[in-house]
Design a protein around this nucleic acid. Structure first.
Length: 428
RNA sequence: GGAGGGAUGACCGAGUGGACGAUGGUGACGGUCUUGAAAACCGUUGUGGCUCUCAGGCCACCGAGGGUUCGAAUCCCUCUCCCUCCGCCA
């Protein structure tokens, strides 16, 4: 959600941001028109309410019965008028809220301007893709051959885009999750959170998922409860409607959740393998900061996510998303991609965003810089640290051997019960 | 699932139609006193909106949303959440 006062004062700047994103700027004029109506009505209503308040107090003190009756009759008319105006005001306010809800976050000035993902900029790169002396095979062949990944039974249970992990496959995922959580909590200073995996509709709206992305989220109609598409949703809502003390900031949270997405937008794409399932696991980093420190925090989060990739020995590149590829609620985003030699592509394993005050406004999360000072909106940041299926793909494909076995990266072995190789002689 | 009780400011808690944005207490902050601290005493201690050069003015907010009324924290309706007891259960 954008600041209505800001839109009022700098409409051209808002329009420019929308155009750079590839959105229509017309919505700004719509907002300004509704805002004008709203304020005009509000002034009328408030003037009448002030009159009613004043006269009602007088009535309570009146002795003269006739005069009293006269005033009550007069106020009855005023009340009726107020009621009419309030009805119109409510309508205008709800229209305005509705239109505002579709306004995306404005891109930060440092974000490269461009229409689509072809204009994203590679800002960092690390590691060399491994040289193979045999033809590396994709994980959708590797997994079933090792008997750690079962697509047919996943489909039998739940339909397309579902799969079953077994044996060391399941264990590898569990090891990765535990390891990531341990690194973030012990070394990067995060507080671990285990949130609900389903939330109320309100939480989806707050996080910016609704109303725009309703068709991508599963929900239960009977209880109107929604399955989280990312841990970012419950984490954003953790401090909803709170005024934090300046001393509390910055807050660093890390949470593991399963994530559920209907993937209606990408029907038919990436159907092979575990790259894009309806259900996937993710460890999510989340920070709440002051406005002054949020961009520094974003760089730190990127570094923390890259730290994991380096320890796993996975070559990566970092993309700075251009304005046209930016997510709805983000002002600046970096994507981290690792190389998967089997399927031969860069896989997005993390997306790190500074939402500035966009979510904070929707969620009404503020902080008091110091005692007695006025509350200000916080900045919120989120980033995967990391997304499991794609890291699994990269690990399996990168560390595969000619005999079809997979070497377990050294950093993970303590979480794998000491298993060094999946398949081969040590097969469980 | 059944029965009952509740939601008021940072916290506790009073308030059942008119001077209540809200008694009182706790905490916090400032001050007096003190060598210092404590105690005691005095004072301060909300959020948002509209208007506005400033000072200020006005409006709204007592879980949420409607309604009754000249006037609602207070009465009515709907919803949400919490608690207690019983039942069921990983």
């Amino acid at each position: 959600m954008l600041d209505i006062a800001f839109i009022r004062e700098r409409p051209e700047q808002v329009k420019e941001g929308l155009i750079n994103r590839g959105d229509s700027p017309n919505i700004v004029d719509e907002v300004l028109t509704l805002d004008g109506h709203r304020r005009a009505l509000l002034q009328q209503v408030e003037a009448l309410r002030a009159e009613r308040n004043r006269v009602s107090k007088e009535i309570s003190r009146m002795r003269d019965k006739t005069e009293r009756e006269e005033r009550i009759a007069a106020m009855r008319l005023v009340g009726k008028r107020i009621g009419e105006l309030e009805t119109r005001l409510r309508q205008v306010e709800s229209d305005l809220r509705q239109v505002m809800a579709f306004l995306p976050a404005l891109p930060h000035e440092s974000v490269p301007v461009g229409p689509d993902e072809t204009h994203n900029v590679v800002v960092r790169q690390w590691g060399e893709p491994r040289e193979f002396d045999f033809e590396p095979i994709p994980h959708w062949d590797l997994g079933p051959e090792l008997d750690i990944l079962d697509f047919e039974r996943g489909v039998k249970l739940s339909g397309s885009r579902f799969y079953v992990l077994k044996k060391e496959g399941a264990r590898l995922q569990r090891a990765l999750i535990s390891w990531m959580l341990d690194v973030h909590t012990r070394e990067h200073g995060y507080t671990e959170i285990y949130p609900p995996f389903v939330v109320k509709k309100e939480c989806m709206w707050t996080a910016g998922e609704l109303p725009k992305f309703a068709e991508n989220i599963y929900h239960d109609v009977e209880d109107d409860i929604w399955l989280v598409p990312t841990a970012e949703v419950p984490l954003t809502n953790l401090h909803r409607d709170e005024i934090l003390s300046g001393d509390d900031l910055p807050l660093h949270y890390v949470a593991y959740t399963a994530c559920f997405r209907r993937e209606k937008m990408s029907a038919g794409r990436d159907v092979r393998g575990i790259k894009r399932g309806h259900q996937f696991d993710k460890v999510e980093m989340y920070r709440i900061t002051t406005p002054e420190t949020s961009y520094q925090a974003l760089e730190e989060m990127v570094e923390e996510a890259l730290d994991l990739c380096r320890r796993l020995g996975l070559p990566y590149r970092v993309l700075e998303l251009c304005t046209g590829d930016l997510g709805f609620h983000s002002s600046k985003t970096y994507d981290i991609e690792v190389w998967a030699p089997g399927c031969g592509e860069w896989l997005e394993v993390s997306s790190l965003s500074n939402c500035e005050s966009f979510q904070a406004r929707r969620a009404n999360i503020r902080y008091r810089p110091e005692r007695g000072a006025k509350p200000r909106f916080v900045h919120t940041l989120n980033g995967s640290g990391l997304a499991l299926p794609r890291i699994m793909i990269a690990v399996l494909e990168t560390y595969q051997q000619a005999d079809g076995s997979v070497i377990v990266p050294e950093v993970l072995r303590p979480w794998m019960g000491g298993i060094e190789v999946i398949g081969g002689d040590q097969a469980a």
